[in-house]
Design a protein around this nucleic acid. Structure first.
Lengths: 154, 154
DNA sequence: TACATTTGTATCGTGCACGATTAAAACGTA
DNA sequence: TACGTTTTAATCGTGCACGATACAAATGTA
């Protein structure tokens, strides 16, 4: 049966487990990333830079879906740690180029084992490998959908 | 092919789309919740209180997986808005009971249409209803797993 | 009854997220 | 060449999250 407020029950929400799971997984990364002296969003910035050599703030923003008001202080903290440098473009003074230092590149070798460690953490008796693969596939379809809807708001 | 750093590519991560999707979905809620003058975490607190009449801080913490250092200021902001009251228990002075006011209850009727609006936003040509149902099922299995792993860290 | 331990909340400091706004540089066009 | 528009970062203010810690109330135990 159920009453007219059934839709408001926590167990019927899809957003809440998504939100909670995301937070827990970030927590799984924390001790691994702490050894590299970085946070999870900083790790994401490194992933994009390792893959693309050099990026503007705007490019990172488009890759990670983070606004400049989040990235600017985050990148400054990383610059302070000597992981990267920020440099205004010569051609266009509005653009800030983000370039990894030697230290920034060196973290890559220490980080390379992290994904496997996370996968090991996620492997369980309840969820098969196919479940996870299918889950990721759905997620990769869902992301552009919600992105488009969310960005249409503003 | 691929090199030894393949595991560090953003496209191969499962955490990143989860994290990004969660943020986008929260963003979908924002304009709807703004009309009720609440934020998404505050909405989650309301969901748990509507379902349970009255809860201690600790109980909310266990339901939403949020620590007291997150909940205390959040509940104080909600108290300031007149949505709820916080009251030390008579039996055990350490315990704080959280009780909805009339205003807190009245928000329920205005919120009841929100879940459907979010579902409508998520419905798309790419993802079928079964995809979403299966996705939620996997998510509900995954959550307790990562929760356990994450809480074992500390 | 003393005293160590546990429990429940709160405080503090740091780091995201993000809406709103600002400001400078580049561009378009009359 | 003037001037309005667009683009790109940065700034400001608010609200989470969370690790570490503090503190008082309750509990356990000698």
């Amino acid at each position: 049966m159920g009453d007219k407020y059934d839709s408001l029950k926590l167990g019927n929400q899809i957003c809440f487990p998504l939100y909670a799971t995301s937070r827990f997984i970030t927590k799984l990364y924390t001790p691994l990333l702490k050894e590299l002296d970085i946070t999870y969003p900083q790790y994401l910035v490194l992933l994009s830079l390792w893959e693309n050599e050099q990026l503007t703030v705007r490019a990172i923003s488009e890759i990670l879906f983070l606004e400049s008001n989040t990235l600017t202080p985050l990148l400054k903290r990383m610059e302070k740690k000597g992981i990267l440098i920020r440099k205004r473009s010569d051609e266009d003074e509005r653009v800030v180029e983000v370039i990894l230092t030697e230290k920034g590149w060196s973290i890559r070798d220490k980080a390379v084992c992290i994904p496997q460690q996370i996968v090991d953490s996620l492997s369980s008796s309840n969820l098969s490998r196919e479940d996870i693969v299918h889950f990721k596939k759905t997620l990769d379809q869902l992301l552009p959908e919600v992105r488009q809807k969310a960005e249409n708001i503003t």
